[in-house]
């Protein structure tokens, strides 16, 4: 049976009426109209559906929409400021970090968690973190370069307060 509830997505309220069994990824796409979050495997292997839940990257296929009530949900649609790309998106463009683009929203949100945490992972740590997401165009090298260069640029900009690792 459908149940009404509200989600906070990218700072906006979204009224949902959905069955409790509907995963957050489907709720975002079908009920909130935010199709930027892609669904790959639906069982927590590929990471394509990665979003930020209260600032932390999680797989939105492994959370029910109804469980995300009251949480601060952020999706790839929340990254750009109007026509101005987020520095991470700009870096993905510059480093050719995408081909087909299916995995891109997931990798961007994984990167966004790092960006906002203030953390500066080593190369090995970054590789371990990124290993949670799959890219079938085998673009891992460029994805890693793009995120590393965006984090470098962040650290050269005036300091912002981080709250620990993603």
């Amino acid at each position: 049976m459908k149940q009404p509830y509200h989600l906070q997505v990218n700072g906006r309220d979204c009224a949902v009426e959905a069955e409790p069994r509907k995963i957050l990824a489907d709720v975002l796409r079908e009920d909130c109209g935010l199709t930027g979050t892609h669904i790959g495997c639906e069982h927590g292997v590929c990471g394509a559906c990665t979003i930020l839940l209260d600032g932390k990257p999680v797989r939105s296929c492994l959370v029910f929409g109804i469980q995300a009530q009251g949480a601060d949900i952020r999706t790839v649609e929340g990254l750009a400021d109007g026509d101005e790309l987020h520095p991470l998106q700009q870096a993905f463009m510059e480093h050719h970090a995408l081909q087909c683009g299916f995995c891109t929203p997931g990798f961007l949100m994984l990167g966004a968690a790092l960006w906002e945490s203030g953390a500066k992972p080593t190369e090995a740590e970054l590789q371990a973190l990124l290993s949670s997401n799959l890219c079938r165009c085998t673009g891992y090298g460029n994805i890693q370069k793009a995120i590393a260069s965006a984090l470098d640029a962040r650290d050269q900009a005036p300091k912002r307060s981080g709250e620990g690792a993603p």
């Binding site: 927590g44 990471g47 990665t50 839940l53 932390k56 990257p57 999680v58 797989r59 492994l62 959370v63 994984l110 371990a128 973190l129 290993s131 949670s132 690792a165 993603p166």
Partner: peptide, 9 residues
């Protein structure tokens, strides 16, 4: 255990 993403939940 899994990845940082899955350990978050």
């Amino acid at each position: 255990v899994g990845h940082r993403q899955t350990r978050n939940r």
